[in-house]
């Protein structure tokens, strides 16, 4: 049974697209047929992070309006088998999307794939609601920062009320992903701790991605950071994907390890 998963946050720039690319890649690496849909119509970022921006011919809007077939628009990932993506349109705006059109596309994708990951645009307007409407599960991406947590709280409220599952009296299974986490700054009380965020949002924690130079580097290269198995962020995304599939893995990278003199002298940041 195919699962529709929305990756959402409310606030922009917290790492939805990065997380979507890495989690999708990790799921495909585990052998699950996975498709990523970019709902950020008008901005189009997911194809950049996936490194397939030069292969975009047709997009999501073209399919919903019948201008192209699904098979024509799906872009196959070069690095991982079982991984496809459906880009957003750069030239159209969010009003071009309709619930009926999205439903048709998602139903068709459900025949072919195990996981359909929807990369939501920021905000709480139509675009974000459309991305979450057909979701069975949701990954709420949050930075350890007050405004991000507040916006995530708002989004969880919408997941409980504005989705088809909610309208049918069921619930969308929701889990929390904290990104850009810096244990050192948490230690110095500059940043909210994972415990604080968990207490406010009151949903299960599925992963903590540490602040890492590797993430920006990977995004600019168009290679999801999960491919960088040397990096802490890449490992954290692998853990997160495993937990998402039901595996029980301890949280890593959440405690501040005081650097010894040796590593302070020789160990730069990776």
């Amino acid at each position: 049974m195919a699962k529709v998963v929305v990756i959402t946050s409310g606030k922009g720039g917290v790492g939805k697209t990065t997380s979507c690319a890495s989690i999708g890649t990790a799921l495909a690496m585990q052998g699950h047929r996975t498709v990523l849909i970019d709902f950020d119509v008008g901005l189009r970022n997911l194809d950049l992070v996936m490194g397939c921006e030069r292969r975009v011919v047709y997009d999501l809007i073209n399919i919903t309006t019948g201008e192209a077939k699904l098979s024509q628009a799906l872009i196959r990932d070069k690095r991982v088998d079982n991984l496809y993506m459906l880009p957003a349109s750069q030239t159209r705006d969010k009003d071009a999307l309709t619930f009926e059109g999205i439903e048709l596309v998602i139903n068709e994708l459900k025949q072919e794939f195990d996981f359909i990951l929807c990369d939501s645009p920021a905000g709480i307007e139509r675009g974000a609601v459309m991305a979450m409407y057909f979701a069975d599960e949701a990954i709420v991406v949050t930075n350890p920062e007050v405004s991000s947590v507040r916006d995530s709280d708002r989004i969880i409220g919408l997941l409980d009320s504005k989705t088809r599952r909610a309208e049918q009296g069921e619930s969308v299974r929701t889990c929390l992903l904290v990104t850009r986490y810096d244990p050192e700054r948490v230690e110095h009380a500059d940043m909210m701790s994972v415990q604080d965020i968990e207490e406010i949002l009151a949903i299960p924690l599925s992963g903590v991605i540490p602040e890492s130079q590797a993430v920006l580097r990977a995004s600019n290269q168009g290679i999801p950071v999960v491919h960088d198995s040397e990096s802490d962020a890449g490992q954290a995304y692998m853990d997160m994907a495993a937990r998402f599939l039901g595996e029980d893995r301890p949280m890593r990278f959440i405690d501040f390890e005081r650097k010894g003199l040796f590593s302070r002298m020789f160990g730069g940041r990776r």
């Binding site: 709480i124 507040r150 916006d151 709280d153 708002r154 409220g157 409980d160």
Partner: peptide
């Protein structure tokens, strides 16, 4: 029976 969230 749930948490009342921002905006609700």
């Amino acid at each position: 029976r749930s948490t009342v969230r921002s905006g609700q």
